[in-house]
Simulated assay, not measured.
Amino acid sequence: MSKIAPSQTLTLRAARINDLDDLLQIESESFSTESYPLTSRRQFRYLLTKAKNVELFVACLDKNVVGYGLLFFRKNSFWGRLYSISVRPEYQGGAVGKQLFERAEQRIRKRKQKGMLLEIRADNQKHLKRYLGLGYQLIDTIPDYYPDGSAALKLRKEL
Rank of each mutant, 00 (worst) to 15 (best):
Leu117Cys: 02
Ser84Lys: 13
Asn124Gly: 07
Arg121Val: 00
Ile120Trp: 05
Val96Glu: 13
Gly93Val: 10
Ile108Leu: 08
Lys110Ser: 14
Ile108Tyr: 08
Gly93Met: 08
Ala95Cys: 10
Ser84Glu: 13
Gln125Met: 11
Ala95Pro: 02
Lys110Ala: 12
Gln99Pro: 01
Ile108His: 10
Ala104Cys: 15
Ile85Ser: 01
Lys114Ser: 12
Leu100Thr: 04
Gly93Ser: 06
Arg103Gln: 14
Gln125Thr: 11
Glu119Met: 10
Gln125Arg: 14
Ala95Tyr: 07
Ile120Asn: 03
Ser86Tyr: 03
Ile85Glu: 05
Glu105Pro: 00
Gln113Asp: 09
Phe101Lys: 04
Gln99Met: 11
Tyr91Pro: 00
Glu90Phe: 05
Ser84Cys: 08
Ala104Asp: 02
Arg107Trp: 05
Ser86Gln: 03
Glu102Asp: 11
Ala95Asp: 14
Glu102Trp: 03
Glu119Ile: 03
Glu102Arg: 13
Arg88Lys: 15
Gly93His: 07
Gly115Ser: 03
Gly97Asn: 09
Lys112Asn: 15
Ala104Asn: 02
Leu117Phe: 13
Ser86Glu: 01
Asp123Pro: 02
Gly94Asp: 11
Ile108Cys: 06
Gly93Ala: 02
Lys114Ala: 12
Met116Leu: 15
Arg107Leu: 14
Glu102Thr: 07
Lys112Ala: 15
Glu90Asn: 12
Arg109Phe: 02
Arg121Lys: 14
Arg88Trp: 05
Ala95His: 08
Phe101Glu: 08
Lys98Ile: 02
Glu119Tyr: 08
Ala104Thr: 06
Tyr91Ala: 08
Val87Gln: 06
Arg109Ala: 15
Asn124Met: 10
Arg107Tyr: 09
Lys114Thr: 15
Arg107Lys: 12
Ala95Lys: 15
Glu102His: 09
Arg107Met: 10
Gly97Tyr: 08
Gly115Asn: 09
Ser86Val: 00
Ile85Trp: 06
Lys98Asp: 14
Val96Gln: 09
Glu105Thr: 03
Asn124Pro: 11
Glu105Leu: 13
Leu100His: 03
Lys114His: 14
Ile108Ala: 04
Ser84Thr: 11
Ile108Phe: 07
Leu100Ser: 00
Leu100Met: 01
Arg111Ser: 11
Lys110Leu: 14
Phe101Cys: 05
Leu100Trp: 05
Lys112Tyr: 08
Lys114Asp: 04
Leu100Pro: 04
Tyr91Met: 01
Ser86Arg: 02
